[in-house]
Design a protein around this nucleic acid. Structure first.
Length: 793
RNA sequence: UGCCCUGUAGCUCAAUUGGCAGAGCACCUGACUCUGGAUCAGGGGGUUUCAGGUUCGAAUCCUGACAGGGCAGCCA
């Protein structure tokens, strides 16, 4: 899938574990046979250009398919004729290819309109969808709010025949836009707004860029997407976090249609990058309002922009692998992207000399007509590549103005009056005289060159190395220097009444119009990348003409000197100390907030406050008669099925405290939210028996959990399971001691660390033995034995 | 305010599913250097949001609080 194999599969890490939670799910699906293959898809809507956030999704989807030997489709989610265009389809295809991926099939949601229509009819016949004739306004109003349920439409109970007839006529074009919609018939009171009878079709008498005027009803995203996935045999449908609430609807459509096998949706956090915006709407606005030169402006986070900026697809892929895939909203440090870019370019961009802001240097001890050709290596010593080019050297040179300071600050390692520096690939020169114009501006430096310093150092101090270009044969060039488009890390974070545009960085583009480059660059072609030594990486822009070379700065070199100066200027630099203070402060602040609450209402509120009278009576009985803690009592009493199971368990094993503990801390854990105690394939008596086994020491706690997990799965009697599988606790020291000693012997390094005070290692050794006995060893005994063994060894 | 999701180093993520809290980036120091680059060696940085609980043992399980994000388009 990748042209180069240097790129590791999506998020491959050094460790044995999976790269990310989605890869983990896929591996599990493959391992259990739930799935035999992996089919993913990248589903852009052709209404804008792809940006680096999409790159994350592309790398993920294509990478997963590649890693697990599956396929990845490119599917255009083109269900909205009013915003989509063929221009975008082509741009998207170009960008995906440029990134280095080839799709296993090109698909369009608009090709599925017939099938989608048939399925909609199926839902209508099943009474699961209806034509609503309310106005847009009415529909919005009756949807309710996040805190109030919606109101059913008066058209909700139309007959199947009427719905069928209306829907058919909607398709036939009998109605104007907005006259009717088709809605799924689900639940207007659902706490999930997405489930309140969502729209499936709207009427739009609009020309579709692919289907022309074939249709005047168009499917909504939720209706089209999952079914498109199903049609293509997608196994894992990966999207971003804002679709989490849509998953319930995704599932509902597929399940009520009865499509099998069906795809499943998983969500990950979209990429946010410091100092830029990532929404298509905002990028479009930047282009339309002329804040940038176009979709491919090198300051744009679009793939087209990054490409024109000179960033390589390899760097973007590396970056995407670096940032990982998770579910926490986050924003990535710009330095991470820069690192990926430099890391890639370091080994592929030849080094050349260029001067952005020329300052003339005359070498006074050379004859007027001096001409010489130096041989300069394209690559530094640590890059295993060969190649040199001739570099002319004469009496007059240009150096960068920034490389000379009349009053050099401490630590400055470049040219200054009386100081000597080396010209990269050339001689050492010493500054003898500074020439200025009437305004006092430095116009020229008069220096002397030491002809004995070509391959060797003189016996006087050389302060540094600077880049230069021979004036006589310099090639003029325009160099565009790009900086972050916005001046703050999160441009979307704006105060009332302002917009992200207020954060535009006015200096995001500066042009060095009078730059000069060495003559070897005269033949450079658009797309060629170079490192201008000491300045950064640059690419020849397509604006270059035969007369005039134009370069874009891709990224600067890492510059520790500039960084130091920057910090110095800020005075008290925010070192690690202040960072620590800041986080400590934040911690205290939240803590204070947390502590302030109980004084008011919530935290110190009586745990029984929310219970019904009947529940409260039960909870009180648990406290009074069984001696339970109020919190525990309230928790048990609040759930009918749980309370019944608990009481039955206490009947079987009349020790309320441990039974309550196991009910709350272990049973609730295996139930995990959607199941209730009533769904369990075992009763309270069996559960009580299990608690007895643990409490009386027949089996260990960890074993108890294993048995519980098994019971939750298949039911059964705990005593029988224990006997069948021989799970009794092992607390015979004679059996345990050899295991403990073996564990200690096997890890002499850990023993040493333990001695040095790393006491957490005690758990490591206990864990070793516990694992070896599959959890059957008595942990207290093991612990004691480990302690003894460690003391001896 | 209802529902859903998420809180681990400055940033992005790991942690063999209850047993050593780690990596990359960033930062600092040193070495090397004809790029203030690269490379190499080392270093600092953590109350795993907080408070309780269960457990021999909790980042991981339970309860509660707090913080951030998402959902009320005939957009996707």
């Amino acid at each position: 899938m990748h042209p180069t194999d240097a790129h590791a599969p999506a998020g491959t890490t050094g460790r044995a574990g999976s790269a990310n939670f989605i890869a983990e799910i896929i591996e599990e699906d493959l391992r259990t046979g739930r799935r035999q293959t992996v089919v993913t898809r990248f589903p852009p809507e052709p209404n804008g250009y792809l940006h680096i956030g999409h790159a994350k999704s592309i790398v993920l989807n294509f990478g997963l398919a590649r890693t697990y030997g599956g396929r990845c489709h490119l599917r255009f989610d083109d269900t909205n004729p009013t915003t989509e265009d063929i221009e975008y389809v082509e741009a998207i295809k170009r960008d995906v290819q440029w990134l280095g991926y080839r799709w296993d099939g090109e698909f369009y949601a608009s090709d599925y309109f017939e099938q989608l229509y048939d399925w909609a009819v199926q839902l209508i016949r099943a009474g699961k969808a209806y034509v609503d004739s309310q106005s847009e306004e009415e529909i919005r109003r009756t949807r309710g709010t996040v805190t109030e349920p919606g109101i059913p439409s008066p058209y909700r109970d139309r007959s199947v025949e009427e719905n069928l007839d209306l829907f058919e006529r909607m398709r036939a074009g009998e109605f104007p836009d907005g006259a009717h919609v088709l809605r799924a018939r689900i639940d207007m009171a659902s706490p999930n707004m997405k489930m309140r009878d969502p729209l499936m079709y709207r009427i739009r008498h609009a020309h579709h860029y692919r289907r022309g005027d074939d249709w005047c009803i168009y499917p909504m995203y939720d209706w089209a997407h999952g079914q498109s996935d199903a049609i293509e045999g997608i196994t894992h449908s990966i999207c971003t976090l804002e679709f989490e609430n849509n998953r319930e609807l995704y599932d509902w459509f597929l399940d009520t249609l009865g499509i099998e096998p069906r795809p499943y949706q998983y969500e990950f956090a979209r990429l946010n990058l410091d100092y830029t915006v990532m929404s298509k709407r905002k990028l479009l606005q930047l282009v339309r309002e002329g804040h940038v030169r176009g979709w491919d402006d090198p300051r744009m986070p679009t793939l087209a922009g990054l490409r024109r900026r000179g960033v390589t697809p390899e760097a973007i892929r590396t970056f995407c692998d670096m940032i990982g895939v998770a579910k926490a909203n986050s924003r990535v440090d710009y330095a991470m992207l820069e690192y990926a870019i430099r890391d890639d370019l370091n080994t592929r961009a030849p080094r050349v000399l260029a001067v952005l802001d020329p300052l003339r240097v005359v070498l006074t001890n050379l004859p007027e007509d001096h001409e010489e050709t130096l041989e300069a290596a394209y690559w530094p010593h640590d890059i295993p590549k060969e190649g040199t080019r001739p570099v002319p050297f004469g009496r007059t040179l240009y150096i960068d103005r920034a490389d000379f300071q009349e009053h050099p600050p401490k630590g400055y390692k470049r040219l200054a009056p009386g100081r000597a520096v080396r010209l990269r690939h050339g001689y050492v020169i010493t500054c003898d005289e500074v020439v200025r114009d009437a305004d006092g501006r430095v116009t020229e430096l008069r220096c002397s060159v030491d002809r004995a310093t070509l391959g060797s150092n003189p016996d006087y101090k050389v302060w540094g190395v600077i880049h230069w270009v021979d004036a006589a044969r310099a090639v003029p060039a325009e160099v565009r220097l790009y900086d972050r488009l916005f001046s703050v890390p999160d441009p979307d974070d704006v105060p009332e009444g302002r917009t992200f545009l207020d954060h535009l960085n006015p200096d995001s583009l500066t042009v060095a119009a009078g730059a000069v480059v060495e003559p070897s660059l005269a033949a450079a072609r658009p797309g060629d990348r170079f490192q201008f030594e000491r300045l950064g990486y640059f690419v020849v822009d397509e604006d270059s003409t035969g007369e005039r070379l134009v370069f874009n700065r891709i990224v600067t070199l890492r510059d520790t000197w500039a960084k130091k100066r920057e910090d110095g200027k800020r005075g008290d630099a925010p070192g690690p100390e202040t960072n620590r203070e800041a986080s400590a402060e934040r911690r205290e602040a939240t803590q204070a907030a947390g502590e302030a609450a109980p004084a008011g209402t919530s935290a110190r509120r009586d745990p029984m406050a929310d219970l019904t009278p009947a529940q409260r009576a039960r909870a009180t009985r648990y406290v009074d008669a069984l001696g339970l803690d109020r919190h525990d009592a309230a928790l048990l009493a609040s759930d009918e099925a749980l309370a019944r199971l608990f009481e039955d368990a206490v009947e079987a094993y009349p020790h309320p405290r441990p039974v309550a503990n196991w009910t709350i801390h272990e049973l609730l854990g295996v139930l995990g939210g959607d199941r209730t105690a009533a769904d369990l394939p075992f009763d309270g008596a069996a559960f009580g028996a299990l608690v007895r086994l643990v409490d009386e020491g027949t089996i260990t706690g960890p074993t108890g959990k294993q048995v519980l997990a098994r019971m939750a799965e298949h039911g059964g009697d705990p005593r029988a399971i224990v006997e069948e599988q021989n799970l009794r606790q092992v607390d015979d020291d004679a059996l345990l001691r050899p295991l403990v000693e073996a564990a200690v012997r096997a890890h002499p390094d850990k023993v040493a660390q333990y001695r040095d005070g790393k006491t957490g290692l005690l758990g490591f050794f206990v864990g070793q033995v516990m694992r070896q006995t599959a959890g059957k060893a008595n942990p207290q005994r093991v612990r004691a034995l480990v302690l003894a063994a460690l003391a001896e060894a």
